[in-house]
Measured scan of single mutants.
Amino acid sequence: SSPEYTKKIENLCAMGFDRNAVIVALSSKSWDVETATELLLSN
């Protein structure tokens, strides 16, 4: 995975989300952090 994707994963994990959930959310939202965060918060 690219450093850009890794940084997005790390940033969301730092907010307390599960790493696997973060990866699923990001990949399902075309790696857009904002919409992935909304998805994680709604679960």
Rank of each mutant, 00 (worst) to 15 (best):
R19P: 08
N43C: 04
I23E: 15
F17C: 05
M15C: 05
I23L: 11
E34W: 03
T6Q: 14
L26Y: 01
T35H: 10
P3D: 12
E38V: 05
A14H: 08
S30K: 12
S27T: 15
K29C: 09
I9L: 03
E10Q: 06
I9S: 03
L26S: 07
L41V: 13
T6H: 11
L40R: 03
A14V: 02
E10I: 09
N20M: 06
L26V: 01
K7W: 05
K8P: 05
N11H: 13
Y5P: 04
K29N: 13
S30F: 04
N11I: 06
A25I: 01
V22W: 01
S2W: 02
N43T: 14
S2A: 07
A25G: 03
L40E: 06
S28G: 07
S42T: 11
P3G: 12
S2L: 06
E38L: 08
S30G: 14
N20P: 15
S28R: 12
V33G: 05
E4W: 03
I23V: 13
E4S: 07
N43V: 07
W31S: 08
S2Y: 08
K7V: 07
E10K: 07
S30I: 00
A14C: 01
T35G: 15
T37Q: 14
L41T: 12
E38M: 06
V22F: 01
T37N: 13
K29G: 12
C13I: 14
E4M: 06
E34P: 13
A21F: 01
P3L: 12
S30A: 14
D32G: 03
S2V: 06
M15Y: 02
V33E: 14
A14F: 00
I23F: 08
D32L: 01
T37V: 10
K29L: 07
E10G: 04
L41E: 15
E38G: 09
S1K: 15
E4R: 03
S28M: 10
D18N: 11
Y5K: 12
E4N: 06
Y5G: 03
V22A: 13
S28W: 00
C13M: 15
C13D: 04
T6N: 11
D18T: 09
N20W: 10
I23P: 09
G16D: 06
N20G: 11
E4H: 07
S2R: 07
W31Q: 08
A21N: 06
S2D: 08
A25E: 03
D18Y: 01
L40T: 04
A14M: 05
N20A: 13
T35M: 10
F17S: 05
K7N: 10
L12R: 02
W31E: 08
S2N: 15
S28L: 08
P3C: 09
R19Q: 09
L12D: 01
N11E: 14
E4T: 08
T35E: 15
T37I: 09
P3R: 09
F17G: 05
D18K: 07
N11A: 15
E4A: 07
K8R: 08
L41A: 12
S28T: 14
R19D: 07
D18G: 04
T37P: 07
E34M: 07
G16A: 00
S1C: 10
S1V: 10
S1Y: 11
D32A: 02
I9V: 06
D32T: 02
I23H: 09
L40P: 06
F17Q: 09
L39D: 10
L12M: 07
T37G: 08
E38H: 10
G16T: 00
P3V: 13
N43L: 11
L26F: 02
E38F: 02
S27Q: 07
Y5E: 00
Y5M: 12
A14P: 00
Y5S: 12
D18P: 11
L39K: 07
D32I: 00
D18W: 00
F17T: 04
A14W: 00
T35Y: 06
L41S: 08
I23G: 11
T37S: 09
T35D: 15
S1F: 15
A21Y: 02
V24N: 13
V22K: 10
Y5V: 08
S27I: 14
A25C: 02
Y5D: 11
C13E: 06
D32N: 14
T35C: 12
R19E: 13
C13W: 00
A21W: 02
A25Q: 03
F17I: 04
M15K: 09
E4C: 02
V22M: 03
N20Q: 14
D32F: 01
A36T: 06
T6A: 08
K8W: 00
K29H: 15
L40C: 02
K8L: 06
Y5F: 13
A25K: 00
L26P: 11
L12F: 12
A25F: 00
S30L: 06
N11G: 11
I23M: 12
A36F: 00
M15W: 00
P3K: 08
C13G: 02
L41H: 08
E4P: 03
A25D: 02
V22H: 05
G16N: 02
A25M: 03
C13Y: 02
L39W: 12
M15T: 02
F17N: 03
N11R: 12
I9A: 02
V33T: 15
S30M: 09
A14Y: 02
I23Y: 09
A36G: 04
S30Q: 15
A36C: 04
S2C: 11
N20K: 13
N20E: 15
S2P: 09
S30E: 14
I9K: 04
L41D: 08
A21M: 06
W31P: 09
G16L: 00
K7D: 15
E34A: 12
G16S: 02
L40A: 05
E4K: 05
I9N: 02
E34I: 04
